[in-house]
Amino acid sequence: MTITSTHVDVRDLVVRYRRRTALNGLDLRLGAGVHGLLGPNGAGKTTLMRVLATVVRPASGGVTVLDGDVTGDARLRQVRRRLGYLPQQFGYYPRFTVREFVEYFAWLKEVPRDRIPAAVDRAIERAGLLDRADERLKRLSGGMLRRAGIAQAIVNDPDVLLLDEPTAGLDPEQRVDFRELLRVLGVDACVLVSTHLVEDVAAACADVTLLHEGRAVFRGTPAELAARGAGGDGDSPIERGYTAVLRAARSA
């Protein structure tokens, strides 16, 4: 038996919300690098993020994150120390400053106490928010709030980083900076980015997974997705590839 451990290993994953099936037999293996997650609304992107973030438990199937089975309780705590998660929408305590917000999550993630101040400083610097570090969250714009969210996600140097629509609210310049950060983070961590902005994927991701109705209907490089573009609609080759793959999945 060969054991090749990966960061994320999902097998036959099923998640149901009441009567709706959000994920329906999904298989996915991810190693280090930046991975894009594409798909129309309701395809199951956010649900997959939440399962990998150990926020919800699946109805059935196997989910292994960092060699720990997260459908059970035994390894949950160890795995969670090495996770970073930025949900699509996240609330915040409005009176916290950016620094306090990031510090709060450093404590919750059980970062060693003597490392916390430097780790918080570095996370805020990497997210490009140093000049606003002591501003209260309620005074920040949407784009800055998103960057505060990114800072808390990376404060523990996670091995698995889950970012759900991280570029929402960022202006074009900030998005370019963010893609650069993504590439750096992806050098030695597994970064999963869900987005509806196809150009983000093309610019920063090594590979793309396209979800449709709770299943993966495509897995490959952005170039391979673009190559499927014949017969699809869109402004760029990769958009045409995206629509063509979806169209094929719907008619199948």
């Binding site: 090749t4 990966t6 190693g31 690098g33 090495r82």
Partner: peptide, 11 residues
């Protein structure tokens, strides 16, 4: 150029 690393992970 980012390549797939498929190695043993640990901390």
């Amino acid at each position: 150029v980012v390549g797939e690393l498929d190695d043993d992970r640990g901390h």
